[in-house]
Design a protein around this nucleic acid. Structure first.
Length: 476
RNA sequence: GGCGCGGUAGCCAAGUGGUAAGGCCGGGCUCUGCAAAAGCCCCAUGCGUCGGUUCAAUUCCGACCCGCGCCUCCA
C-alpha cells in the first residue's frame, strides 16, 4: 500500500507514487535561508519532511530528496555586510551550523542540496526563456519581472482568481509593500532579476540585462529543474510559502519550460507556535536548538516534540511539551527493552538491522505502520505503538522477534533513535564517598545512618537510587 | 474582503454514523527497611454553541461563537 498524503492543490488525500515509467520518487523541499541559526519552527517543517522521506523509503520507494540552501537574497547579503564577511564566508558559516543542527535532530541529509548561488547561470537561463516567451519583461533599470497576467492559470495552487487579487498596502510584518520601488507593470508582478544596487556591495552577477542578482522565487524553480526535471513528484515547504512563493514557482517553471504539471503533489506543513503565541523575534520566543539544549533538553526530545502533532495542524511548542516528550521517549525505551528481552536481542541488534528472516515483518506494529501511511499521522502511529507496548500478554519469542522488526522500522521512519548514550555526569569525590558509605550502612542494616547519608546527598543535590545489587547516583 | 486551518479530559493529542487511541500530569495498588525506579489499575455519559438529517452524531448538513494562518518578509 502506498503512502497517502493530503495535496494542497487538489485538496485531496492522494497516493504517493512515482510518475508512470519512473523508478525514483523526486521530492523538492524549500530549504533554509542561511543568514543565522534556524529556529525550531523551521525545523518542524524539515523534520516532518524527513519523516515523509523516511516513511516512503521504509515503504520501499526509491526517493530523491532535494533541499536547497538559499545563500543569496536580501537577508544573506545584509547579514554578510553587517558581519564584515564575504557572502560566501558568511553563508558557509550558517550552512555548517544548519547541518550540525540537522544531524543532531536526526534529519537524513537530502540526496542533493543545491546552492542558489551556484545555480545563478541556470536561473539566468530560465529568466531568459521567460523573457523570450513573453512571460517576463525588462524594466528600465535592468530588473526583470514576471508578467502574472501572461499566465492564465496563475493562482491555481491557492485557488485565487488573480484578476481579483487585491494587493495589501502592508504585509503581515506591518511593513509597507513597496509596490512602486521597482518599475513593475502590475503590483502582482514579481521580480525575477534585481538590477544591481549600491547596497548590494560586491554581490552582483552578470546577465543579459546587466549586473544584478536573482529574485528569490526563481531560485527554487531553477534548482528543481536542474535536479528533478521540468516535472517531479512532490514539492514541500512551510504553509507560509504556499503563497506567493510556490504559486510563483509554478508560474515560472511552467511558463519557462512550457510543460504543465510542475509538481504532482504539494505538501505543506502548518506552523509552530511557542507558548501559545506566534513565533517572532520581537516576542523573544524564537528558539534555536542550541537554546533548548542549553535548557537541558536533548535534540531527540526536541524531535519527538516537533513530530508529536499532525503536520497539518499548528503545533504549540512549550517547555512542558518537551518535558512530556522526555517521559514518553523514556517509556518507549522501556517498552522496547522489554520486547528486546522477550525476543532475546540486545539493544545493539535493535539499532542494526535485525535477523534477515524477520526484516519484512511488522509483527503487532502493522497497524501503527498503516496509520503512519495514512496522511503521515504520526500522533496516531505513536498511539498505536504505545498501545502495543502496553499489551498485557507476554509475546512469544517468535512474536517478539517480529515485533522488534516492526518497531525498528516504525522508529526509523519517525527518525526516533532510542538508547542514545547520554553524557555521563561526573560524580564528585565527596558525593561518591557519601554514596559508598550509605550503601555500606544499608548493607549492615544501619538504617538510621543510611537515612542520614541520603539526606546529606540531597543537600549536595544528588539522589541515590537503590537497586538489588547496587546503586546509582543521580543529580536531582 | 479573498483563500485556508482549527476548537476533543488539568495539559498535549489521534479518531469514528453506533456510543471516545495514546502521551504527560494526578490518584490507587504491588514491590521496597526508607526513598525511588518499575509494573499494574483508575482518570471525558463527553468531543465550541444552537438547530437539522438519522433508529443512532462528537463524527453528516446549516447557522453562529471563538482562536489561528496566508494575501507578495517568512519553514
Amino acid at each position: 500500500m502506498p503512502v497517502f498524503l493530503h495535496d494542497t492543490m487538489s485538496r485531496e488525500k492522494r497516493p504517493l507514487l512515482p510518475k508512470p515509467g519512473r523508478e525514483i520518487y523526486g521530492m523538492y523541499c524549500c530549504g533554509p535561508t542561511v543568514y543565522g541559526p534556524a529556529h525550531i519552527g523551521n525545523f518542524r517543517t524539515f523534520t516532518v519532511q524527513d519523516v515523509l522521506r523516511r516513511t516512503l523509503e521504509v515503504g520501499g520507494l526509491k526517493v530523491k530528496h532535494v533541499r536547497n540552501i538559499t545563500d543569496v537574497d536580501d537577508k544573506t547579503i545584509r547579514g554578510a555586510q553587517a558581519a564584515g564577511q564575504t557572502l560566501g564566508d558568511f553563508t558557509k558559516k550558517w550552512t555548517e551550523k544548519f547541518h550540525a543542527d540537522c544531524k543532531a535532530l536526526g534529519l537524513l541529509a537530502p540526496h542533493v542540496e543545491p546552492s542558489a548561488v551556484v545555480h545563478i547561470p541556470q536561473q539566468v537561463a530560465m529568466i531568459k526563456a521567460l523573457v523570450d516567451r513573453g512571460h517576463a519583461y525588462v524594466a528600465k533599470d535592468g530588473s526583470v519581472y514576471f508578467k502574472v497576467c501572461s499566465c492564465p492559470d496563475y493562482g491555481k495552487l491557492n485557488h485565487i482568481d488573480f484578476s481579483k487579487l487585491e494587493t495589501q498596502t502592508e504585509n503581515s510584518a506591518g511593513e509597507a509593500n513597496d509596490a512602486d520601488e521597482y518599475e513593475r507593470e502590475s503590483a502582482s508582478d514579481f521580480a525575477l532579476w534585481k538590477s544591481r544596487k549600491p547596497e548590494d556591495g560586491a554581490n552582483f552577477w552578470p546577465s543579459p540585462w546587466g549586473e544584478g542578482r536573482p529574485g528569490w522565487h526563481i531560485e527554487c524553480s531553477a534548482m528543481s529543474l536542474a535536479h528533478l526535471g521540468a516535472t517531479f513528484d512532490l514539492h514541500g515547504g512551510g504553509i507560509d510559502l504556499c503563497f506567493p512563493h510556490h504559486e510563483n514557482e509554478i508560474a515560472q517553471s511552467e511558463c519557462a519550460t512550457g510543460v504543465k504539471g510542475f509538481a504532482a503533489h504539494w505538501f505543506h506543513s502548518a506552523h509552530l507556535m511557542v507558548e501559545g503565541e506566534k513565533m517572532s523575534k520581537s516576542k523573544g520566543n524564537l528558539y534555536t536548538l542550541d537554546e533548548l539544549v542549553a535548557k537541558g533538553f536533548s535534540p531527540m526530545e526536541v524531535r519527538y516534540t516537533l513530530i508529536s502533532g499532525h503536520y497539518r495542524s499548528s503545533l504549540n511548542f512549550t517547555m512542558k511539551g518537551v518535558d512530556d516528550s522526555r517521559s514518553a521517549l523514556a517509556k518507549l525505551e522501556r517498552g522496547a527493552d522489554r520486547l528486546l528481552a522477550a525476543a532475546g536481542f540486545t539493544r545493539a541488534e535493535f539499532a542494526a538491522p535485525v535477523a534477515q528472516e524477520v526484516q519484512t515483518s511488522w509483527g503487532r506494529f502493522a497497524k501503527a505502520w498503516e496509520v503512519l501511511q495514512d496522511d503521515l499521522n504520526i500522533p496516531g502511529c505513536l498511539g498505536q505503538v504505545f498501545t502495543v507496548l502496553a499489551e498485557k500478554d507476554e509475546p512469544s519469542a517468535e512474536q517478539a522477534r517480529q515485533d522488534v522488526s516492526g518497531l525498528a522500522k516504525i522508529l526509523f521512519a519517525l527518525g526516533l533513535e532510542l538508547f542514545v548514550v547520554k553524557a555521563e555526569v561526573a560524580i564528585p569525590a565527596d558525593v561518591a564517598d557519601l554514596g559508598a558509605r550509605r550503601w555500606a550502612a544499608k548493607q549492615s542494616k544501619d538504617f538510621a545512618a543510611a537515612d542520614q547519608l541520603r539526606k546529606d546527598l540531597a543537600t549536595l543535590g544528588w539522589t541515590m537510587l537503590d537497586r538489588k545489587d547496587g546503586y546509582d547516583l543521580k543529580k536531582s
